[in-house]
Design a binder for these strands. Structure first.
Length: 363
RNA sequence: GUGCCACAAAUU
């Protein structure tokens, strides 16, 4: 079993889900996994969590007897849920864990705070913060950062600053969290002042600043920073392309896109460019690029559908929609809204009726 | 043994 554990660990490390699943099957066959003391399920849990398959992770988790799972196992699953955009499940798990008499530690709270900020639930987040104090949990840089970020995302800059001021040690992440809060809630220029005075900056800090400018339509300042930054990544490029596209300069957006280094071109880079053409009403170019995309996500599909609908080309929107293999709630919304806006009431209701058996709740 | 924080994109 020691041997299997290291195999599973290797899968987790290199993110190879398929190998991991094969191992999982083997372990079920030979019955090794069934004995809790091998801690093989714990290892599998970790593997599935790393691969972001929360469903399998939870299934494996349920196989582990309560006597053989610790805070780390709970935290592993919680953080997996948060990463997969299921923060409510993460909080549920947190409550359940306490019900089982397992105590959260400072790492658990990192995921806890992340869940609260995604839900915009400061109240719960603050309760967690108080819990940490009361129970004497250590405020590591990471834990404090997570708490700060929770306050920032909920618009509570005063609380965020209080955490920041009380930290005995700060990292570049701490500064970047405050920076993005200032940009978002107190204006780009105030953010810029902090940016200029920060003790250290990394690519995320630069990106936060560029993103702030580009959301403000100030592509001049964005460009200024873009040219001067020491390191760029795909987020940087995406923000620039998107910024130019939104400011109406689709030509500049395209030029940016063409300059993106190969390894930094990803599905989001493509998506913002396609969406840029869509927003500029150039559906033909958008379509060409869309067809060229190496990989598509929910966002482009919605963008294309909405774009065709705005041009009154509802038929074409439908063609696109029917090509989607796995649909999203937003994809449905785009189609239904498009039908409605073009006076196709019957089709809108038909689509509305059809989405529900497919497991979507209209919102 | 194993869990860890900040920056980018779609519908109304």
């Amino acid at each position: 079993s020691h041997y299997y554990r290291s195999l599973i660990r290797a899968c987790a490390r290199e993110n190879s889900l398929e190998k991991g699943q094969k191992l999982h099957a083997t372990l079920i066959k030979n019955g090794l996994a069934a004995s809790p003391h091998t801690f093989l399920y714990n290892a599998l849990l970790h593997m599935y969590a790393v691969c972001d398959i929360s469903l399998s992770a939870h299934n494996v988790f349920d196989q582990i007897p309560l006597t053989h799972m610790d805070t780390i196992d709970w935290t592993t699953l919680m953080s997996c849920y948060v990463r997969n955009g299921l923060p409510d499940k993460a909080l549920l798990l947190f409550r359940f864990m306490q019900g089982e008499g397992v105590f959260p530690d400072e790492v658990t709270f990192v995921s806890f705070f992340a869940a609260c900020s995604r839900l915009g639930d400061v109240k719960t987040g603050q309760q967690g913060h108080v819990y940490m104090f009361k129970n004497g949990l250590p405020f590591t840089v990471t834990a404090s950062n997570a708490a700060m970020d929770m306050y920032v995302k909920c618009g509570r800059m005063i609380d965020a600053r209080r955490v920041f001021d009380e930290m005995s040690e700060r990292s570049v992440v701490s500064w970047s969290i405050i920076l993005s809060g200032m940009i978002k809630w107190e204006g780009v220029e105030n953010g810029r002042n902090l940016f200029d005075e920060m003790p250290e900056r990394n690519v995320v800090s630069w990106n936060a600043m560029i993103g702030g400018y580009s959301k403000n339509g100030d592509m001049g300042s964005a460009w200024f920073l873009f040219e001067r930054m020491p390191v760029r990544n795909s987020v940087t490029w995406t923000e620039m392309i998107d910024g130019f596209a939104r400011s109406g300069d689709i030509v500049a957006a395209r030029r940016m896109f063409d300059e993106v280094p190969f390894e930094m071109k990803n599905v989001v880079t493509w998506t913002v460019l396609v969406d840029g053409y869509v927003s500029n009403g150039q559906m033909d170019t958008a379509r060409e690029l869309f067809e060229e995309m190496p990989e598509r996500n929910f966002f482009v599909w919605s963008s294309m559908i909405a774009g065709y609908c705005k041009k009154g080309q509802v038929k074409e929107a439908r063609v696109i929609f029917d090509r989607i293999s796995v649909r999203n709630l937003v994809n449905w919304n785009a189609l239904i809204a498009g039908y409605a806006q073009n006076g196709f009431c019957k089709e809108a209701f038909e689509a509305f009726a059809r989405m529900q058996p497919e497991g979507f709740k209209p919102d």
